[in-house]
Design a binder for these strands. Structure first.
Lengths: 209, 209
DNA sequence: GCTTTATGTGACCTGGTGGTCACAATTAGA
DNA sequence: TCTAATTGTGACCACCAGGTCACATAAAGC
């Protein structure tokens, strides 16, 4: 947690520091992000920084926390009727919402992306390992439920599929920004439909609907 | 390319340095790998290192090249009858071979894994960008061919699927070593079958075979 | 044996990192 | 207004990175 000194700061200064830091962690992974650049771009002294934050990790966790909070408030209304929806329709909603968030807050998406790649670093273990496993557990529960409801075949390896769905969900953003578009538009919606359709029916030509 | 001095070295010394370097790049990404650790673990002087290699990148590329060569000689006989096989059977063969290689050469697998995550770094651009796009292009061609042959439905986004197949192919190793086993065994073969079956038919319960 | 060429070596350089600290400036309280 | 507490500051620290270089050692040619 940042020190009191930080929260006593005038709002605009606090927001400046925060946004500069977000930018830094979006451009560079945790280990490559530089406190020197952050203080430089914020126009504050190095010493001041350490009056606001305990250390680099303190700042990083603060931003992650802020990011998680904003994502939750953003996503919650977009994902409706979780229990009522068909599994594949729900999956569609989730991917749509996640992509929309990523397009609207590309810096947050970048931070998340770095974090996923930084695995096996200490930082990862102390933060996202929980969340990623959490994500996996979420899809795992979803899959098991869908199997019970007869929407998903019961002969699949739930854990493996949960892993890949989590993975792909996280990689979608990169795919879109790299190959398709960096705006949330009709094309993107169509691609999501395509993708969910693949998850549902596979690639095989033999039994297409 | 390493300097002549390196190739004039007695074989055992050359192999020692190489294996220490492979180990270092397996443990750490390119930017985090340390020349100091390499020379330390090899028992050679820093100055000697720079008589063998131009710089860090020179060593890294040398190892990548060695790795690629070994992978090719390893995989080639394992993937047979490329043009004759059914698309999904071919995919199965590829995944099987790739996994087997990764299990047999876990350090190479780790290096590759770091590299994929290091994207947008200079190193990535100058090395794997070719190979990854190459990988994508490979699957893309495979998919298009399979569509022509009527094995894969024609209403899919080839590029997107090629991207995800490449991605998943590269992530499989991590999944297995993390959640299943670090030996190539029957369980693994079964999982591969499961996975290919998913790619082929999807998750839907409605039209299972 | 002597000379020249090829190797080996580690102190040293520059430049970066995260983090500290004695001190200056400001603000708050009385 | 004088004092005490809070906040701002940048030189500085220890450490590590990749890379260099003058010099020591060894091998090769004659």
């Amino acid at each position: 947690m940042p020190k009191d000194t930080f929260f006593n700061l005038p709002l605009d200064k606090r927001e400046l520091i925060t946004s500069v830091a977000v930018d830094e962690f979006a451009r560079h992974s945790y280990s490559h992000a530089s406190i020197n650049r952050i203080v430089g771009n914020s126009g504050i002294a190095k010493g001041s920084f350490y009056q606001y934050f305990e250390d680099k990790q303190d700042l990083f966790f603060y931003i992650l926390q802020k990011m998680a909070a904003e994502k939750i408030t953003y996503l919650t209304p977009l994902i409706q009727n979780v229990s009522e929806l068909d599994f594949f329709e729900l999956l569609r909603q989730i991917h749509k919402a996640a992509l929309k968030f990523a397009m609207e807050y590309p810096q947050y998406a970048a931070i998340g992306s770095h974090l996923l790649k930084d695995r096996e670093s200490k930082i990862y273990r102390e933060t996202i390992s929980t969340n990623f496993s959490g994500g996996m557990e979420f899809y795992r529960a979803l899959l098991e439920d869908a199997i019970k409801r007869g929407q998903v075949r019961q002969d699949i390896d739930v854990q493996m599929l949960a892993y890949f769905i989590t993975l792909i969900n996280n990689s979608m953003v990169e795919y879109y920004t790299e190959y398709v578009s960096d705006q949330f538009d009709e094309t993107m919606l169509a691609s999501i439909d395509q993708f969910i359709n693949f998850i549902e029916h596979g690639l095989s030509a033999s039994k297409t609907d």
